[in-house]
Amino acid sequence: MTPLLGHTAMVLHFSFLCFVVFGGFLAWRRPRLFWVHLGVAAYALGIVIVDWPCFLTEIENWSRSETGRAVMEDGFIDFYLTGTLYPREHLLTSRLVMAGIVALSWAGVGWTCLRRRSRERSGV
């Protein structure tokens, strides 16, 4: 059961990260999701900037230690992505790209909402 819990935490971690980066695009179709995405993105920013603890990392590390595997010393992103998906020396660049994707998705949410309102006002 312990390895299953760790693997579930890992899958949820990847899902969380995907939602942080791309969730704003879902709000183009469902504008109310913007507020959920804003909260998730703020929490992710807090994890990166303020070093808030991530409960998924805690669960996965507990599972790893219980099954005799190495714990993630520097967190999920450093353990799975840094050095694999992008070179270690481009960590800041990858963060800026992700922030740019989030900003672009939020700009799209604003543009979509403005278009919807103008259509409603014009009766189209």
Rank of each mutant, 00 (worst) to 15 (best):
P3C: 13
L5P: 08
H7K: 13
T8N: 15
A9H: 00
M10L: 11
L12T: 02
L12I: 07
L12E: 05
C18V: 15
C18I: 15
C18F: 13
F22T: 06
F22W: 14
R30F: 11
L33S: 04
F34K: 12
L38V: 14
L38A: 14
A41S: 11
A41H: 06
A42M: 12
L45E: 10
G46Y: 06
G46E: 00
I47H: 10
V48D: 08
V48P: 03
P53F: 07
P53Y: 10
C54I: 11
C54W: 03
C54G: 06
F55Y: 12
F55K: 02
L56W: 04
L56K: 04
T57K: 00
E58D: 15
E58R: 13
I59G: 04
I59R: 03
S63V: 00
S63Y: 03
R64A: 13
E66K: 03
E66C: 07
T67K: 01
R69S: 09
R69I: 05
R69V: 08
M72P: 03
D74F: 12
L85K: 03
L85S: 01
E89W: 10
H90L: 03
T93S: 05
S94W: 06
S94P: 02
I101A: 14
W106G: 05
V109L: 06
G110V: 13
W111G: 02
T112N: 14
T112D: 14
C113Y: 11
C113E: 11
R116G: 03
S118G: 01
S122E: 13
S122C: 05
G123F: 05
V124Y: 14
